[in-house]
Design a protein around this nucleic acid. Structure first.
Lengths: 343, 343
DNA sequence: TTGAAAGCGCTAACAA
DNA sequence: TTGTTAGCGCTTTCAA
């Protein structure tokens, strides 16, 4: 049988309550006695029973808040699935999960949600932030109250959040560059279609891609960056332009943001699969289809499910095991998919 | 607050014990009453509290058995890490995990372990099998006693195991073919270095690779399969031979089994990184190093950690939640790694 | 066939 | 500063 608090108490000649206080460092305890108890616990190899703890703290009616942005994109749907699964696990342990979704990425509304959860005294918050000083200020209020905040999917610098869980955009761009470098022939052109010029994540991918590619394949002609504003039609137009201007050479296109569908629509019209090499982000159904048909060579996934699942579970574990959250960013693995290892 | 057994009992006008019997279908209960209780539970949206259950069943001193083979390879070390982490989680819930490792893949010893765990009445077994009728017979004895058996890493057909968790070798070979097809130029030679001719997993990879590659790149010259018997020196010799015979053409090498280190040692001597295109299995440190240096283009991982972690956790969940195990094979994702998305 | 009660390991409120 | 106790939700044993 595993070691229990009672066994430690017996050995130390004190009561269970005292052992608990010593181990949890809740003050109000004789320092010497406490140290002795901790020593004994260490010797006996004590590690708390998770079920016991979960059951006991369940009386406090604990709950966690989650705030999502723009949950209607295919990517966010997968994030949502992760959130929901983690939520189910939490509820099975008696921890409620309050989910709020913000369709229009509105900072005001996000703030209102945060205020609401704060006044209801939630025990932790996982949120996809929108870039806004109000949000940062709100995160600081959480921090002052000792309520942990995890940003996920995208980070908010200097907001005082406890940790961030999400993609490493620069690395994602570099990974795409590595793929492009392998598949483009000597002297080819490499184009980048990004989303928004001021989106940090998009920009990081672009920089990661361009920086790495020009370094490892100096023979390629790296074209200036295009912006499609996450719009398929715009991406399609850019593709037409690219084909017109550089269609006589081998061509590679890296999509740092949405728009692959638009690109592939144009390629389907006037090119054979694989003639233009395309590397894109986002494991959407349309993209998977294009990958299977050969109009996309590689897809880079960010494991959307895990991005939703992990933050909740970390808050849950903090609550139950009392472990502290990691203080640094935790980057989700970058998945490379070709048509054979999809799913 | 979540619905509890007591609340259902109150509504149904019976005791907690009766509700439990009705929901768990432990017989000895009036059929009508039972149906009524189940109906109420459904209406109230009851779902059991995991912590409560874990705590209660903890009194039975439950334990699970795990049997590993040849745990000294780098791959198995990662599997082991997964097993250990899952074991820790199990122990935190009061479920003991008994781990046995079989260094020399001996069927006799594996059988002895299985017999031992069986007589000690373990509540579930996860094992990496060795191909042997004795093992299959043992699995059947488990089955008769109602003790679930999960094979992992490699399967044992027709043994009556409850489910298999591991890699899909054919798909792994196809994935490698997809990569090779992208990076080899027109008219190149493609070689395959496998491990053992009679190893099913190796053979599946070879078939997946060859079948797919000849289909999507008929212009390539697919060389006959070489066998290196998981030996780096042999793999190196094969590489020398390949360079000698086909060194004037562009060349690609797919490693379906161990030996990449030997291949890279030869390439380091007489070729520039990337001159010969190499796709290999196994995320060993040596392979990662070669990937970074450019002597390997891609590595295919089988998420060794998950292969160890998942089987244990599924047995744990079965014990705690009483859910049945999936009856089919569960394939672990195939990870494509280039030098940028390692880790 | 059912109810009552003990107990799993832990936390927290209250007493001492 | 410490001990005692009730109770979290569930399973299981023993009585009825």
């Amino acid at each position: 049988m595993r070691i229990t608090l009672q066994q430690i108490a017996d050995r130390a000649g004190v009561s269970r309550g005292t052992v608990d206080r010593a181990l949890k460092r809740r003050g109000r305890i004789n320092a010497e006695v406490a140290e002795n108890i901790r020593q004994i616990a260490r010797e006996m190899g004590y590690s708390p029973n998770r079920a016991g703890r979960a059951l006991a703290i369940g009386r406090q009616n604990l709950y966690l808040g989650v705030i999502l942005q723009a949950a209607d994109t295919p990517f966010m749907q997968n994030v949502l699935r992760g959130v929901e699964d983690a939520g189910k696990e939490a509820e099975q342990l008696g921890i409620r999960v309050e989910l709020r979704s913000n369709p229009d990425q509105n900072a005001q509304k996000t703030c209102a949600f945060m205020q609401e959860l704060l006044t209801e005294e939630c025990q932790g918050l996982a949120l996809i932030p929108v870039e806004d000083p109000q949000i940062s200020a709100m995160i600081r209020s959480y921090h002052e109250k000792g309520i942990p905040v995890i940003t996920f999917n995208s980070d908010l610098q200097d907001s005082g959040r406890d940790c961030f869980i999400g993609p490493d955009a620069i690395r994602s761009g570099r990974t795409a560059a590595g793929l492009m470098a392998e598949i483009l022939p000597e002297g080819a052109c490499a184009a980048v279609i990004s989303g928004y010029p001021h989106n940090e994540s998009h920009q990081n991918k672009v920089n990661g891609f361009g920086g790495e590619l020009s370094c490892i394949r100096p023979d390629l002609q790296l074209l200036p960056v295009y912006y499609a504003y996450d719009n398929n039609i715009a991406a399609g137009r850019i593709t037409e332009e690219l084909l017109e201007n550089y269609g006589d050479k081998p061509l590679g296109i890296y999509l740092a943001a949405a728009g692959a569908e638009g690109v592939c629509a144009v390629l389907r019209e006037c090119r054979q699969p694989g003639q233009v090499k395309v590397v894109s982000n986002d494991l959407t159904n349309a993209n998977k289809q294009a990958l299977k048909e050969g109009y996309l060579q590689f897809l880079l996934g960010q494991d959307a499910y895990r991005q939703g699942y992990e933050p909740i579970m970390q808050l849950v574990n903090r609550l139950i095991d009392g472990t502290e959250l990691p203080s640094e960013a935790q980057y989700i693995n970058i998945d490379i998919k070709n048509r054979y290892n999809l799913e």
